[in-house]
Design a protein around this nucleic acid. Sequence first.
DNA 1: TTGAAAGCGCTAACAC
DNA 2: GTGTTAGCGCTTTCAA
Lengths: 339, 339
Amino acid sequence: MDTKPALRSPTITDVAEAAGVSPMTVSRVLNGRGGAGEETRRRVLEAAQALSYRPNAFAKSLKNDRSNTVGIVVPDIVNPFFPEIIRGAELVARPAGYTLLSCNVVEDPEREEEVLGMLLDKRVDGLIICSARLDDERLLRAIAPHRAVVLINRAAAKRHAGTIEVDYRAGVEAVVTQLIAQGRRRFGFAAGPAASQGGRKRREGIEAALARHGLSLVFDLPCTPDLQGGAEIAARLLPEIAQVDAMICYNDLIALGLMKPLEQAGIRVPEDIALVGCDDIPASDLVSPALTTLRIAKQDLGEMAMRMLLDRIAGRNAQQGIVIEPDPIWRATTPRLPG
Amino acid sequence: MDTKPALRSPTITDVAEAAGVSPMTVSRVLNGRGGAGEETRRRVLEAAQALSYRPNAFAKSLKNDRSNTVGIVVPDIVNPFFPEIIRGAELVARPAGYTLLSCNVVEDPEREEEVLGMLLDKRVDGLIICSARLDDERLLRAIAPHRAVVLINRAAAKRHAGTIEVDYRAGVEAVVTQLIAQGRRRFGFAAGPAASQGGRKRREGIEAALARHGLSLVFDLPCTPDLQGGAEIAARLLPEIAQVDAMICYNDLIALGLMKPLEQAGIRVPEDIALVGCDDIPASDLVSPALTTLRIAKQDLGEMAMRMLLDRIAGRNAQQGIVIEPDPIWRATTPRLPG
DNA sequence: TTGAAAGCGCTAACAC
DNA sequence: GTGTTAGCGCTTTCAA
């Protein structure tokens, strides 16, 4: 019955011919613009159906100067922090008629720049950038030509981009303050990527809490934000492990990567050393001892960012900067809380 | 110094005017087609640079009838199995000049169908589908109009798509055989999504091994392929836990989701019940006891799939079906191997 | 070595 | 209610 799929996909003109009308009428019917006779309408729909007609998105975009596509750029799709954000963003984008183009930059600024250019070529209507690693100048230059931008965990002039920032500073400060109250004094920081703004805010939080007690960081080293980074920190830390009785980690992956080497070296967590992560990825509640961390509502974050982006695309720049608070989740890598 | 970014992005005509040549010459220079005077060439490049000209991908695609974009469809981007595949695919796609459009279908067949249609609208040059959940007829109908398709973990007529399949059957059979040798007799299967072809192959592997010893599955229940699914299986299993001394799980997430409820119920792993996952996600080596599993080279899988896809796009359909073998990783949720 | 014309598939603006 | 014209930005074809 079925005819073979044509070599060339059917165009609006093919449908028009099949229905015995003009392309314009087909366009009107298919886009629900109204102003088409009932009978005509039926014939057009039938013809489109019969040909399995799908409008060519390029032609549409070229004409309309909008792609109905938005981009989201993440440092590393394998880091469990980001897929949830992507999912949240997609959840909002799709019902609004947007396709999400998600791009991985593998923690590489060059690549980040390249990807932003590519998204420009594809004429995305807007984009979300998670934890941009580019320096201010390059970032600004790269986003300037874009129609609408939202930055996650990166400050920027409101004119150029909306921002959603996690208040790591407050979150980390609260946790460190609590640990000090429990008697910890010698803090280390596994700082994550040096270029991360979020990393600097976490450090500020630690230092603010420490300063109030006349303390300062005894260990502060950057590392890749993954299990491997944690393992490397462990190797650096172990020779001078006695210097430290609490480690604050840039994220859960680092903390998790730290745990096994510590255990193998006979260091007890949390007795000898307390461990705190950040993000609350699923694995953190699965390991033993379960990891104390700052929970971030990742999917919400993605949803918010996308809502803000859609607003900006629509020219509504109402909410320009949102700050969300992380939630301390006290688990077993820190001493039991009193009460 | 800089002029404000224009409202309208510069076109090839703008560049042509600035350089005092025709659009055609600009096109030639920018695409490295050769046949342009040295001096002309220089002027064009300069003008393009000065205007920050970026060719409009739509116009290009509309004309060329190719988008230089390929799609990859995954059931759930939050499942750690898939981001690694995506990364592998991207690693191969980008140097070849392709942009990867990754789409999440949240384990929903309707959504899968919709996404395949959307990809068609966007005129992707080809696409990879991971663990398609559509039934054969709908899947075939959905991929038929696409130019090139590769299926991961799903069989198909070679004419319609290349395939890369993990030999779960053999992998699972080997593991179960080993467990039987260690004295396990009462096997359960946390089967994952009913629509998964991979799930059926795992079951076949279990049953083949059991049959050789006159045994059969005492527990076989579908579940979502995530931690939640494991927790639900645990709830169903616990009342009749004594019936079972080994659980084979569709994937590591399910196995991991199973572990905490079992532990809380006082069931010892592996003494009372052996546990086997599949995929070898990073968390599996972090928990205690560490999870025995079948390792799949996820990134390789993604790379292979993309290479096969690029071949098919280029009209080279040499390698049409690849089977890869999973690697049993014996860890602590199964009894120690002899030797 | 360079340019002019035509057209990819679609739709906004304006007829009829 | 429906059709015609023109043009989005680019490149292929052909001519100069």
